[in-house]
């Protein structure tokens, strides 16, 4: 469980201090996917950097299972829009990076190989990131995050740089692997469709400075043929209205 109380973040702009996040309050239950949706520039990414322990300069309280955020003791899987792969390491070494730093592990265990096969990247291990397509690189980033067996998975618009077909493929693949692990996941997106497809809960952000407008239960989560259902249409309208009100 992640408890967030009165979380505010300011940063120094050119002339004045800019408020990026304004007193966020939310409890994130373990084993759920929370999709955070909001217009660009609303501080969604800033929020993610707080959770991942990258941004330490904030006001308020953020507790993960009752403790302060600390990337050294917690296992955090971070998946970014531009993959965050190291171009000078081949795919195998990129995938190993997480467990190498966390556990000084040097070889992939059975679970790791299972994940690679599931993502269909087990034949790419000797290649370098620049030799892979965007979709393949994102598969590598997902593999790296899951192989880490994280307590918390943070995803910052991971699929937004992919083309529409690859994106839907990746969303499905991600859900598939996620179901077997049920990692607590914070998923940042600006797509209503993606928020509905992947989120068991949907959190709507206001435009800058970021505030939480609403936290919605998503009845569409894990429904079959989601995109053809009435609930999907209703929820999508509801979300858009909340976003428009801002």
């Amino acid at each position: 469980m992640i408890e967030i109380k009165d979380l505010s973040v300011k940063y120094q702009g050119k002339n004045q201090e800019i408020l990026a996040l304004d007193r966020l309050n939310i409890d994130i239950n373990s084993g759920d996917i929370y999709t955070f949706i909001g217009p660009s520039g609303c501080g969604k990414s800033t929020f993610l950097y707080v959770l991942s322990g990258i941004l330490k300069d904030y006001a308020g309280n953020v507790l993960v299972d009752g403790r302060d955020i600390n990337p050294k003791t917690q296992r955090i899987g971070l998946i970014l829009q531009n993959y965050g792969l190291l171009p000078w390491k081949n795919i195998y070494k990129n995938i190993m990076l997480g467990i190498k730093i966390k556990d000084r592990e040097k070889v992939l265990d059975e679970y790791g190989i299972y994940i690679l096969k599931k993502l269909g990247i087990e034949t790419l291990l000797n290649r370098y990131p620049k030799e892979l397509s965007g979709g393949q690189q994102q598969r590598v980033a997902i593999a790296r995050a899951f192989i880490l067996k994280p307590d918390l998975l943070l995803m910052d618009e991971p699929f937004s740089a992919l083309d529409a077909i690859t994106r839907e493929e990746m969303q499905e693949l991600f859900l598939n692997i996620w179901k077997e692990n049920s990692v607590t996941t914070v998923f940042i997106t600006h797509s209503v469709d993606e928020a509905l497809y992947l989120g068991s809960k949907i959190v709507v952000f206001s435009p800058s400075p970021g505030r939480i407008l609403e936290v919605l239960e998503n009845p569409c989560f894990q429904a079959d043929n989601l995109r053809y259902r009435d609930e999907y249409y209703d929820m999508s309208m509801k979300l858009r209205k909340t976003l428009d009100k801002g």
Partner: peptide
Amino acid sequence: IPQEIFRSLQSLGA
């Protein structure tokens, strides 16, 4: 060096 690369490592607690 792009910031994303540092962020990945920071989140791992490197």
